[in-house]
């Protein structure tokens, strides 16, 4: 088998695949953050905890109620979104007029409480979640072996991300969302129930996080801290892409996953820090982010 720059292609493509998978999670999570920030003006630090809740909802559903993966894929995001909506209605709602910082502190505190409770109940060690039967095994693509479940993660998140992008950029509901982000007061004057729009938007952003959690359950351990580890990286991705851009958050997420994967091949020592290095460079040359608008 020929080698590229002294790297066997299986290794190269294998790492790129892992990079794409991580990138899919970055994209799903930063997309949710971007949508929430756009309309609510809140940096949702509970996002990692909500991702974790998605994975746990799937695991608990299977463990105690025999809910299979496919049902969990829909049910877990719905349940976690309902929990998110409850938080929005009772707590977040009070902070919209305040500085970003208040929302950040509140959601950060909520994340600590949620994660702390789950550590208390389930311990820090992860719980395994089996790959659903129909997605076991894999394909030999010639240049590499593709586990079916990993392929499924990439396809599913791409479909959800670009479906969301289409909904926001091309539909009437999306026009409400964009206009509400720009000038909520005028939207109210036109007869749009903006508080309801805000609640549903938060619910949708949270559902995206929970969906990522369910997708992640079979490949990572289901553990109370799975979200907080990931969220730090996702925030770096958001900074790189620029807050508030829908397409930007999707593309940056995928790109950063790939860069991380390639770094693992060519300079493994830097693979866990490369995203932060990119972030620093971007902050120096383009503070508003790759896709952000200069203020």
């Amino acid at each position: 088998m020929t080698e590229l720059l002294g790297i066997p292609p299986q290794v190269l493509f294998g790492q790129m695949l892992i990079g794409l998978i991580n990138g899919s999670f970055y994209a799903l999570l930063s997309l949710g953050l971007a949508i929430i920030f756009g309309l609510l003006n809140i940096i949702n630090f509970s996002h990692g905890a909500q991702y974790m809740l998605g994975a746990f909802a799937a695991w608990l559903g299977l463990q105690y109620f025999g809910v299979n993966y496919w049902v969990a894929l829909v049910l877990a995001p719905v349940c976690v979104a309902a929990f998110g909506i409850l938080l929005e209605r009772t707590l977040l709602r009070r902070l919209y007029r305040e500085d970003h910082l208040y929302g950040l502190l509140l959601t950060f505190g909520l994340a600590l409480i949620i994660e702390g409770s789950f550590v208390h109940w389930f311990g820090v060690s992860g719980q395994p979640y089996a790959v659903p039967e129909s997605l076991q095994g894999g394909q030999n693509l010639g240049f590499m072996f593709l586990p079916t479940y990993r392929g499924w993660i990439i396809v599913a998140s791409l479909v959800v991300c670009f479906g969301t992008w289409y909904m926001i950029e091309r539909t009437r509901l999306g026009a409400y969302l964009r206009a509400g982000t720009e000038n909520p007061q005028l939207m109210q004057a036109f007869g749009i129930n903006v508080p309801l729009l805000i609640t549903l938007t938060y619910g949708y952003g949270v559902a995206l996080a929970a969906l990522a959690g369910v997708l992640a359950a079979p490949i990572y351990q289901v553990s109370p801290v799975m979200g907080s580890n990931l969220l730090i990286t996702v925030f770096a991705v958001v900074v790189i892409g620029g807050m508030g851009s829908i397409l930007g958050s999707i593309l940056t997420g995928l790109l950063m996953g790939l860069i991380e994967g390639l770094t693992k091949v060519f300079y493994p020592e830097a693979s866990s820090t490369v995203i932060f290095l990119v972030m620093i460079i971007i902050l120096l040359v383009r503070p508003a982010g790759l896709f952000g608008k200069e203020a």
């Binding site: 026009a175 964009r178 206009a179 982000t181 720009e182 000038n183 007061q185 005028l186 939207m187 109210q188 004057a189 036109f190 007869g191 749009i192 129930n193 903006v194 508080p195």
Partner: peptide, 23 residues
């Protein structure tokens, strides 16, 4: 509530026009 006033048949054209840049 503010979002129900328009439903009574009121159309409001604000001084700053309020054209949406993202639309």
């Amino acid at each position: 509530p503010a979002h129900q006033i328009a439903r009574l048949g009121v159309g409001y054209c604000p001084e700053e026009r309020g054209i949406f840049a993202s639309l």
